[in-house]
């Protein structure tokens, strides 16, 4: 279960003056759902294209299934399923024809497996519909099972859920869970922090670097500072007053509440409540300890990075 099937060391990639990937090192164990989360321009797509063997890195070593990807691409490739971010289907072909095409391309013909994939993806009823006429979510599901047609051991998925509706997003994740339970290792990129919970481990990526790699609950715990949440009005006034309070590292408004990252041992919810009550005209509903959000961890790491360098 714990064999590392992806080993990346000191990976570098430049596009002209842009360092798209900077000294990237990480490992993925067999059976993981490894999420790479980051904004546009973080390097997610470049990384996946390198892992899929589509482009070559400038430096670094890259071992998949204990083989050097750059030297033995032909031997590794059949073990990989790759779903690029852009439309990878033939719009004029039907669902069935697209899958048959992928089968032929990979030299894999297993009608029973194709039936199962169609069933998992709930696409059986749309066999004869042309790909262009599918909804965005259905297109993504079709592309995903297309990447699975030759039973790869490692799935590389580039933003499969970006911009899709909540129902399709959930169906895509259910599909991934299905493959995960069958032992397929999954490496998936996403811009959505809330998808971290679906992964066994997560890398937070920003400007060509991985800021942190860990299980989602451990990442949250890694913030290292307690968080206090206060619900009070007027929210802007209370925010402005608490932001400058000694002990408060960060104060961010989240809808009807203010989230305060505080220095360990400096402030309790009671202290915060008292401070807020001291603001003229403020009405405090409640102040309490809160669990760190992944977004706070990400922001904190970005701050640190800026401060360091």
């Amino acid at each position: 279960m714990n064999r590392a099937i992806v080993r990346v060391e000191h990976l570098e990639k430049r596009f002209g003056p842009v360092r798209a990937l900077m000294d990237l090192s990480f490992m993925v164990d067999e059976g993981e759902i490894f999420g790479i989360i980051g904004p546009d321009g973080a390097g997610k797509t470049t990384l996946l294209r390198i892992l899929a063997g589509v482009i070559r890195p400038d430096a670094g070593s890259l071992r998949l299934f204990d083989r050097d990807l750059l030297r033995e691409l032909e031997r590794v490739r059949p073990l990989l399923g790759y779903m690029p971010q852009n439309f990878s289907l033939y719009g004029d072909l039907t669902v069935r024809e697209n899958l048959l095409f992928f089968s032929t391309m990979y030299g894999a013909s297993d009608p029973a497996w194709m039936e199962r994939l169609l069933h998992f993806a709930r696409l059986e009823r749309f066999l004869d519909r042309r790909a262009v006429q599918l909804s965005g979510g259905m297109q993504k599901k079709l592309a995903l099972i297309g990447a699975m047609i030759h039973r790869p051991r490692l799935l590389l998925l580039d933003e499969p859920t970006t911009g899709v509706d909540p129902v399709s997003r959930r169906e895509l994740w259910d599909l991934l869970s299905e493959f995960h339970l069958q032992g397929v290792t999954i490496l998936v990129t996403t811009p959505y922090l809330d998808e971290a919970e679906r992964c066994t481990r997560v890398a937070l990526m920003h400007r060509g670097r991985m800021l942190a790699i860990d299980a989602p609950d451990r990442l949250r715990a890694s913030l290292g500072h307690p968080v206090i949440e206060i619900i009070a009005q007027p929210i802007m006034g209370v925010h402005a007053a608490l932001r400058d309070h000694p002990g408060v590292l960060e104060a961010v408004i989240l809808g009807d509440r203010i989230r305060l990252v505080v220095r360990e041992g400096s402030l309790s919810p009671e202290d915060v409540e008292e401070a807020a009550r001291g603001i003229p005209g403020a009405i405090v509903q409640e102040a309490r300890w809160a669990a760190p959000r992944l977004e706070e961890v990400f922001a904190h790491l970005m701050h640190q990075e800026t401060a360091d360098g």
Partner: peptide
């Protein structure tokens, strides 16, 4: 769309300021 968490956070705090 497509922004990092810090940039998104800053846009949102601007929106709060406008609402205020």
């Amino acid at each position: 769309a497509g922004m990092d968490p810090l940039a998104r956070r800053e846009i949102w705090s601007l929106l709060y300021r406008l609402a205020e």
